[in-house]
Design a protein around this nucleic acid. Structure first.
Lengths: 202, 202
DNA sequence: TGCTTTTATTGACTTTTGTCAACGTCATTG
DNA sequence: CAATGACGTTGACAAAAGTCAATAAAAGCA
């Protein structure tokens, strides 16, 4: 299970066998059921998570029960309720495993240890943060400058797997739109399946 | 002018006089006029900018001429077209100084030098990135889970200076809404100035 | 200062998206 | 295999926000 972590990091940091062993010792494995809650809203996120298999979502839920998906975390990626984990504050968001998943968890304390004592870990983290930050900037741009249809088309282009793999409900609140709107977008965008390659008459 | 940079960083990193001198040597001062363009869309952002005085905005402009403000950078803060600067790619966004400003500029190359040779610089950068990333996550949340009025109220609460200081036009496209909608929000939110403290009758 | 240009407000109307409700489909399971 | 429940689609309507246009106000500039 730790092999997945190693292959994910291998291109980004060079460690000795002893160092890998040490790193692995801090990441605790866990398996989750479908829909299992990993972090409740209001609690401090104590762990950074690495997804070996499956998929997690970090989401908000307002007073009316409306959910908004802040992030999705797929295989080979790290994630947590980042503001809570970083600032040691109660989380506005909850974390749930959408599918039965295998994950590795490292505590805040142990993560600081890695930053302090593993040469190159801080650099790797800095570069990883840059990439995550860029992703979030791109997402902000799409939210402030595009309508729902454009956002959907771009997601379709850049990440069709996400759309195929996840229930509509979750894709919709990731895009910041209602489920019904997404459903309508899909049917209006869709190439008509029934039309034959050559067209009727000939 | 470099003193402003020093006081901004002083709490975050400890450097010797020689190190400060070296850092200062890499940040080149520049003064800008109101509305001066600092980076054109399509060019690679070569500099990280530090605002000593004034205000910059990083903004997108679509084919119809609609502008969206990705970020605002005030006194004492760093900023650039981050994805472009980091990935060395043509920028989707442009940078403009909203007010006549004094800034310090450091090139990509020199910034990498600081990361490589100044002890503690990478850590400071990593922590700064965490904070910027958190800000962007909070902004994403507000965009996917709130309507225009809620977003405006929160901005009003958290950053009233921004609303007072900047033209409506820019506040509006920072919020991802039209100028007219912002104008209506303002007048509907506003406490009626004409109403007397006690009410009419009595 | 007075003139010009930009910015802000308001009204009327359109478009987009949300909400509520009904219904269909599919998978699960008792 | 029928019943249940979750998910997806569709329609009708409501609410939110955008667009266009006219005007007012303010800010910058000569």
């Amino acid at each position: 299970m730790h092999e997945s972590l190693k292959s994910s990091l291998a291109g980004k940091i060079k460690l000795s066998d002893e160092q890998w062993t040490f790193v692995f010792s801090l990441f605790k494995p866990k398996t989750t059921k479908r829909n299992e809650l990993l972090l409740e809203k209001g609690k401090v996120s104590q762990y950074l998570l690495f997804v070996v298999k499956g998929c997690l979502r970090v989401f908000l839920i307002d007073d009316n029960g409306n959910e908004s998906t802040r992030f999705l975390i797929f295989e080979g990626r790290f994630g947590t309720a980042f503001p809570s984990f970083t600032l040691r504050q109660p989380s506005a968001a909850a974390i749930q495993s959408i599918e039965a998943s295998e994950i590795l968890m490292i505590s805040y304390h142990d993560y600081q240890t890695l930053l302090d004592i593993v040469p190159g870990w801080e650099r790797m983290t800095r570069i990883g943060l840059e990439m995550d930050y860029i992703d979030s900037i791109v997402r902000i741009e799409s939210l402030i400058s595009m309508d729902a249809k454009q956002r959907y088309n771009i997601l379709m282009e850049k990440n069709p797997k996400l759309i195929q793999r996840l229930p509509n409900k979750i894709v919709a609140d990731y895009l910041g739109i209602s489920q019904e709107t997404l459903s309508r977008l899909k049917s209006s965008t869709q190439v008509r399946k029934s039309a034959s390659p050559e067209d009727g008459k000939r």
